[in-house]
Nucleic acid binder design. Structure first.
Lengths: 338, 338
DNA sequence: CTTTGGCACTCGCCACCACTGAGTGCCAGG
DNA sequence: CCTGGCACTCAGTGGTGGCGAGTGCCAAAG
């Protein structure tokens, strides 16, 4: 077991390293933190910490830097979440309040988060799996051409063009629209398939083909839209990464372009509470020298999607976690209002 | 005036420099290109080219590299557009054919372009200024709450929530919907304002407030949506930029995050034909060491939007131009079909 | 058992230096 | 106008030595 002071030393190392980006030695530590012991003692502690794998030396005769394991301990036991200042909170609210639609909310959120944390921000669009249907609209554009518009409670709109096997009359279409809506409005996506399964049967023979096609398209759209989208921003902050650019930054940029990777990344985060994944804890190889701080957000109690930031393992965890949490809360509020 | 051979020397310099990324000297030139003259002669030519500002030396006793002006001459008079190979064309078509909706088309295009050119790709969404209205839908969600859905001929859908000053009945709403559609469907966005200007007057006193609000929102949406969106991809390719990373790459990433900057960038491109902006020809400072190759694309004859790539001034212009042109053509086809 | 000061050692970093070689400009002769 | 020759420049390379931050270990003190 590590003594209280050794933890204190680790905390000091992490803080200094995050601040200076340079390996930190025993002497510098005693000078910058009031540990109340001599450098020699700190050296002993550092040896112990290294023994346990919390810190490491880049090369002999250099200071120590925290390992992933060290950061993990720091995050779990030594660091709190640093709340934002009141002006910051106000700025967030003002900025997000100006949003006009869902795209705008997500866009603003991603910019805000990037600016606040000075890191790469990732915001997932509110998921549709837990969403409900607000309205289904059918428009006849041509005799045998129908447009399906799906509106969700999170404010998202999706449309599909449908080529019908046979022309359908306006009245039949209006009929279908009405019946469809009476069955699915307010219901969850996942419940829709069984709610509409028998709908085609109640129509005239001549319209059944078309109705089936429309229903099939609706279900397809629901499934497709359950695959989630996301937005990223602040990639310019990657330039603050380290000195050894090309090698570090390249795989990160590549990973960030793969929506699939990012979705998986966010998906791995716990549904509730903040998740911090440090360095090699990230499954994706390109992100082995980055940490991901993610948290769920939602309009009500339930999280409907996640957002977070990606940055170097050497990041200001308390500050970042504070910003991420605050932004998630305000976005949740905004969504609840609309 | 520059002799034929001197132009040939310039071409050789550009080609070699693009290939090797290293300043090219007179001896290397005569070895790798059959110029039929000695290094000494080439040196004289180079001196002349430098005098005219087409090439420069990073430092004395180093080879020459092309200047922006040199690239300009190369692009204008020495380089053709290198057509893609048949397999490449086929790959493009296959890849784009799989797209299911507009977002998907744009997304695939941007990935394709980034991969093909190994540079940063920028694709503007089909512009709405030249678009027409396909349908306007009004949905009553609550007594005094209406949702406006706008569908364009390019397949885009926009929605707005409207809080009405007074409740409006279903019949009045249906009436409004019908009249609205009969006036604006098939019309250009720019024509809509005057087409609906007198519409409110024909309604009952009690509904006029709501009708005006709805119309105002519609116009607002049209204006807002005329501000164009775009998608970028391939930022990982920036790592191939040069050796002096942080300084070069940072402003570029920053510029790329500013949609406004990019839109202006594409906006500066000619409406028809390909536009190449080299280095300082770009208005934006952060892009002073990049070149932009852009071209309009559209479903018919008219260009409805633009796409292009951003890369180092030291890029393979013929190849890049070929790829950009080919992709634009195929996207145009896809859009025309849907 | 912990803490401390002392001490020898390691090793990355930097400044200095000389050498090498690619590349240049110039010039005189074909 | 082209060419070969020649002197010159200068970035890059590699070797050397001193500096200093930082370490590990140890013996003595608390």
């Amino acid at each position: 077991m590590l003594s209280e002071r050794r933890l204190e030393v680790l905390r000091a190392i992490v803080q200094d390293y995050v601040g200076t980006e340079e390996p930190v030695g025993s002497k510098a530590l005693t000078e910058r933190h009031r540990l109340g012991v001599s450098p020699a003692t700190v050296r002993n502690d550092m040896a112990a910490l290294e023994e346990e794998g919390f810190i490491a030396q880049p090369h002999t005769s250099a200071g120590r830097i925290p390992t992933d394991k060290g950061y993990r301990l720091f995050v779990d036991r030594l660091a709190g979440v640093k709340p934002l200042s009141t002006p910051e909170r106000r700025a967030i609210q003002n900025f997000l309040d100006g949003a006009v639609d869902l795209d705008d909310v997500v866009g603003r959120t991603v910019r805000l988060l990037a600016q606040l944390t000075r890191q790469v921000a990732v915001v997932q669009y509110p998921s549709l799996t837990r969403s409900t249907v607000r309205h289904v609209e059918l428009l006849s554009l041509a005799p045998a051409r129908v447009m399906l518009v799906l509106i969700t409670d999170t404010g998202r709109v999706e449309q599909r063009m449908i080529d019908c096997p046979a022309p359908i009359g306006e009245t039949s279409l209006a009929d279908l629209r009405a019946r469809l809506n009476s069955r699915v409005v307010g219901r969850r996506f996942t419940d829709v398939p069984q709610l509409v399964s028998d709908l085609a049967e109640s129509f005239e023979q001549e319209d059944r083909g078309t109705v089936s096609t429309v229903l099939a398209t609706l279900l397809e759209t629901l499934v497709e839209e359950t695959e989630e989208r996301l937005m990223i921003g602040g990639t310019a902050n990657l330039t603050r990464f380290g000195h050894d650019f090309p090698l570090t930054i390249r795989p990160v940029l590549e990973a960030l372009e793969e929506q699939v990777v990012l979705l998986k990344l966010l998906g791995e985060a716990k549904d509730s509470g903040m998740t911090v994944r440090i360095g090699h804890e990230n499954a994706h190889e390109g992100l082995n020298s980055t940490s991901v701080v993610a948290v769920g957000y939602g309009s009500g109690d339930e999280a409907v999607a996640k957002l977070g930031v990606v940055g170097p393992t050497r990041m200001d965890y308390p500050g970042t976690m504070g910003a991420v949490r605050a932004v998630a809360r305000y976005v949740g509020q905004i969504l609840a209002e609309s």
